[in-house]
Design a protein around this nucleic acid. Structure first.
Lengths: 341, 341
DNA sequence: CCCATTGCGTAGACCGTTCTACAGAATGGC
DNA sequence: GCCATTCTGTAGAACGGTCTACGCAATGGG
């Protein structure tokens, strides 16, 4: 089967076996112009019978590596699993492979990973909700084709973006709660060290504030924040629920936070719904569990991932202009926000 | 700062700037033998002032890529986040970078990803609970240094393994439940298409069966299985809980399943604990939430990941013999298995 | 029938490292 | 002071692809 001193079957072995030149085999590999069907078939059959596999490092020296880097902020949030599923779907029938890194929401690690991906000659990057500054993102995008998920930057033409309409999502939640009889509605947001205007949570907050105003609830507007860690979310939630003016409903920027709020509410003996309504965002799988029964906003991570991968491969193929894809969110009502008794 | 026609700073630019040969710079990069401290310092300073970054593809042509591939079966289970955290900890101060792929528990995708990783000249692989056959794993390990997490194969010398003592874990659960007054204890396992003897769930079942025997509960032994999907787990759980002989306690092979069981129990109006005790495995973060309060077995994914990365880098450095690391599990009791009232 | 065009295939430089082989200088034992 | 050994550093061939430049045939328009 295999051959060569090193055991590895190279493009040269294939060329010899098929009785053609090395360059011809390379053309077949790249689907390049200037090969007849007959030659293509002959080469492909040789590749198959020899068990040839292209050597990515060698390709990376001059051409593409057919590898896309995906940077996730976190592995604990199952929403990102949906995004990855979408990316994999999009790449299924292509030559591309996605490799992921996890930034753990730390800008230093994000930088290290992006550098590592650039060093490894990846053909493009999908950054999911990165924490980096805009200037840093633009520097990256100038080096390598980049698509962003979960960061609202329709202005910049350097990268493509894929987003949920987070402002609408925020509005949907407030309207739903108001319709079900809740008026004193708080928003539980993420404590971002460098408050940009483009983070999803900021847009959700904008929608929340606007809807509160429109419904005449401007006075009841209240925003609390906490960092990513479970511990600090619990502390903030407890503080909020024990405060003199406990809100009737809490809209959380992501399901993960909402689950912690449900937990604290239960510890304090508060009934959900009844004493308190809770709404999350992302509609992750845990919302469906009966012990959570969490109302949430569905933004289809799968579609987000799929579109990002599609836009990125297009850009790699040469598109210069930026494209911005927006999905429309949808509220999935469950009992955690049922009508007040 | 930078230079060269392509913008990229190469080893040649560094050599020229430092007034030494290309080979000397390469030696410094690889920490190879035969460079004086003076030369090393000079080269390092040149690298720094030019902003040199090694080109991974070029390195991959002859030497190492300093990239390790990690294959996870699934992104939804937060236990794997712990493993990744451990791997990242171990690699923190090394030149290595981890890139992950997600097999989605499908052997075909696992193969595609492993192939992709081998093609990309990764220096080693960490496979987490792979679904592949032993023969396939051995074929992979013969090609590339490999460490396994969550697969009991102490026999094979081709790869290192890192595991929890799953049999002990199973025993701990049964003993704990028996002490708290439960006798009719069922085990909820994973439906593996190709039933190997090495999967974690099989070992947990062995521990469960042994402990049931030892405690004189052999008659009450009962095992149900379901595939990975939420839907099918729910169906199996419902069937079990509505059966004529409803068990007093259910020991689930992983937390994810236990959460679904809790959900179904609640839908059926069963009190946990009281009508039913539930125990999970992995002690993932959701166990702590008050609405779950799920007793579970802690096996420290972080330690598993850290050890796997350590063993793998050792093996890459040349160790030939196999090593097998085992962590001791610990039961974390919460109210889902509290003493029967 | 001539020349331009298009289709198909080849030769060989090139990408940025690693690594082998070797050379010259310094050291040390006797 | 000689030779063996160790220490530093160099030259240049790999590695396995991609890609540019080019050559030869076949085609087709006038």
């Amino acid at each position: 089967m295999a051959k060569a001193r090193n055991g590895r079957v190279t493009i040269r072995d294939v060329a010899e076996d098929a009785g053609v030149s090395v360059a011809a085999v390379s053309k077949v590999l790249r689907d390049a112009y200037g090969v007849s069907d007959a030659l293509r078939a002959r080469v492909k059959s040789s590749m198959h019978s020899l068990g040839y596999r292209p050597h990515a490092a060698a390709r990376g020296m001059r051409g593409q590596t057919y590898t896309l880097g995906v940077l996730l902020p976190d592995l604990r949030n199952p929403f990102f699993a949906d995004i990855m599923a979408g990316i994999n779907d999009a790449l299924e029938r292509t030559q591309y492979q996605a490799m992921l890194g996890v930034g753990l929401s730390a800008t230093s690690l994000e930088h290290a990973l992006v550098d590592a991906m650039v060093d490894r000659q990846m053909d493009g990057l999908i950054l999911v909700a990165p924490r980096m500054q805009l200037a840093e993102l633009e520097a990256i995008a100038a080096t390598i084709p980049t698509a962003l998920i979960g960061l609202h930057l329709p202005g910049s033409s350097l990268f493509d973006t894929v987003n949920d309409d987070d402002q609408l999502g925020g509005r949907l939640v407030v309207r739903h709660l108001q319709e079900n009889g809740y008026r004193n509605i708080a928003y539980f947001s993420l404590d971002l060290p460098s408050r940009g205007q483009s983070a999803t949570t900021v847009h959700r907050e904008l929608g929340y504030r606007a809807a509160m105003q429109e419904l005449g609830l401007g006075r009841q507007t209240r925003v609390v924040v906490a960092p990513q860690t479970a511990r600090e979310i619990q502390v903030a939630a407890r503080h909020l629920l024990e405060s003199r003016q406990r809100p009737e409903a809490i809209f959380c920027w992501t399901d993960f936070v909402a689950l912690e709020v449900l937990s604290v509410a239960r510890e304090l003996g508060l009934a959900v719904p009844g004493d308190l309504a809770v709404v999350g965002y992302d509609n992750t799988s845990s919302c469906d569990l009966a012990q959570n029964a969490l109302t949430s906003i569905d933004q289809s991570g799968q579609v987000l991932g799929l579109q990002a991968a599609r836009l990125l491969t297009e850009r790699i193929k040469g598109r210069e202009s930026a494209e911005h894809f927006v999905v429309t969110p949808r509220l999935v009502a469950r009992s955690s926000s049922a009508r007040r008794g």
